[in-house]
Design a protein around this nucleic acid. Sequence first.
DNA 1: CGCCCACATGAATCCGCTT
DNA 2: AAAGCGGATTCATGTGGGC
Lengths: 377, 377
Amino acid sequence: MSGAKTVDKELPLDQILCGECVEVMKTLPSGSVDCIFADPPYNLQLRGELRRPDDTLVDGVDDDWDKFSDLQAYDKFTRDWLKEAHRLLDKDGTIWVIGSYHNIFRIGAILQDLGFWILNDIVWRKSNPMPNFRGRRFTNAHETMIWAAKSETSRYRFNYQAMKALNDDVQMRSDWCLPLCTGNERLRNEHGLKLHPTQKPESLLHRVLLASTSVGDVVLDPFTGTGTTPAMARRLRRRFIGVERHPDYIAAARQRVAQEVPLAEDAVVTTPDKREAPRVPFGSLVEQGLLDAGTMLYDKKRRIRVVVSPDGTVISGNKRGSIHKMGAALTNAPSCNGWTFWHFERGGELLPLDVLRQESLALTAQLMAEAPAAAAG
Amino acid sequence: MSGAKTVDKELPLDQILCGECVEVMKTLPSGSVDCIFADPPYNLQLRGELRRPDDTLVDGVDDDWDKFSDLQAYDKFTRDWLKEAHRLLDKDGTIWVIGSYHNIFRIGAILQDLGFWILNDIVWRKSNPMPNFRGRRFTNAHETMIWAAKSETSRYRFNYQAMKALNDDVQMRSDWCLPLCTGNERLRNEHGLKLHPTQKPESLLHRVLLASTSVGDVVLDPFTGTGTTPAMARRLRRRFIGVERHPDYIAAARQRVAQEVPLAEDAVVTTPDKREAPRVPFGSLVEQGLLDAGTMLYDKKRRIRVVVSPDGTVISGNKRGSIHKMGAALTNAPSCNGWTFWHFERGGELLPLDVLRQESLALTAQLMAEAPAAAAG
DNA sequence: CGCCCACATGAATCCGCTT
DNA sequence: AAAGCGGATTCATGTGGGC
């Protein structure tokens, strides 16, 4: 995606910029990023301190950046940065925003108001959440991410097959069970205390970027914190732009990113979607000599048959049409994938046309390798 | 709760009322219900038809009641019924609202705007959701419920121990995995077609009511549909008020509720929360002769000791105070639960004071059973 | 009666390029 | 811009019929 953008040269790629997110975002050109991941302040309305039953203090989020005078102030803040996010996003780009019940409803409503088109709400189920110490509510065991396209008509990226592969070959669901960021992954200061109160686990960003971006895409994180998004972007060979205002976080994030080793180029290749394979017109099989005119095609159970025509149509009685149209017409179906419906005979058994399509693609790839310039032209 | 309300006589209890929810709600007195469960229209905005890969048609929600001209119209609708809900709710009451990403962000924001205090967002994870047939998004495998109190200062009901018991003795989390309403539970018309497009599973309402209401509480459902809430309320011996505008749904719901057999009275008693047990003043142990003045109390490791005073205070040197205050003072802790901190000697071993509290409660219960009137007075 | 297989179905914002 | 059309896409569960 980003490779085609003329604005690329102006972009501060693979950098973590210092400043207020809206101010910094205003310096970037419109439509210049493919994906945004945002972990904004949660507006946690914690009243006083919270203690565990053993009287140790729960280190809640009480930093200054998480203080807002009221809901209206939080809404204004949210609308301001989301407006800039909308401007920066490519027309086919998507945005992820993570939050809890304190702020996610404000964010979701404002996203919709600004014209973003929600694709999913994703539940991050924490495998090891903090228990509810007072026993007055359900254990708050999840956070919510909203995944939205720039507009209703966006042709957004979703690596469906990669997600399916990641989930034992069944569709990835809207609930993801992942552990909190702990142990060595958690950045700590010289006193061993956690550097950032809400550092997100790398596994979360790994899945987000794998699902919704391509290699080389530009990913913006307006609230970079300690740099989980940049680090994962670098690991997965995406480009990143981070924005953060706290110097301590920036220093930690830059160091972290510098230490991150990008995966080998062939290691970031994921299961491709079939839609992205080059289209093979059925007629080209006849042209290439992979299938002769006059060949008989059958459905799987040999109940229906058609004859291949030299122009790539197929004929049954006085009807003629594409392999798809004829498959649909002869079965009274609303549509039909001719590549998997029709079969040809080879060695006494029936094989789907898709086998020939694969052979055609392999043949083309071979020609490309032998004479790239000629084949491309 | 409701037993103490003087408005009870005016309430149309255990009925399903016919009409627009806001109109009907306006006829009910303020502060008259303990809990509200609402399953409002989701405003799904479905476009064309959707087919499964096997070409069968998905029976989507295309009912008129789910159509709104735009987000503003949906917001107005939502604000109107939530305002009435807020008025009807007892000051310590709670509300549940279920929705999907299409509408839940509008609802959550408006709840907050109206002064409701969100307690949890609960994720209903569907064990058997409908897949995403086109492979263009993550499987939409959950719906979200918001649980909110009338105000920040509500002393709302949460049956913590019952929820814990229901969850194999670990705290109930904010994500609930429950199957869809299918099979025999799903109400069908004479043609075997589903009567209501979005009937909720009984297990969901069972847990909701068990978590947030007491036996005898009044539960309002402004969008009753085919009556899952009334049916579960009746089964669990709660009172209900249903509101529904579609005559077919009302007829089905009334029949359904009539067939519902309430559980035996002793079957709906759930694990009581400790904080609901009658409070036992430490001094009453001395009064009851369960502990003699002058008895020595120790911490678990016998490092600290105090002496029991006849007035229920404990003494260490020249300091005197409650078991809690003295526990905190002698350990430099901000607070201390004296019942579990202090131990007494029995048969050569140290037992926590809590053992005596249980014995005191048992003794009182025994007295109540022998002579109820006298003990109560 | 039990096992096996076919079939039905669920709150769904469900395609994208060419002409 | 709207239409045409190639062709990509499903999981868990319950029910019911056949054997």
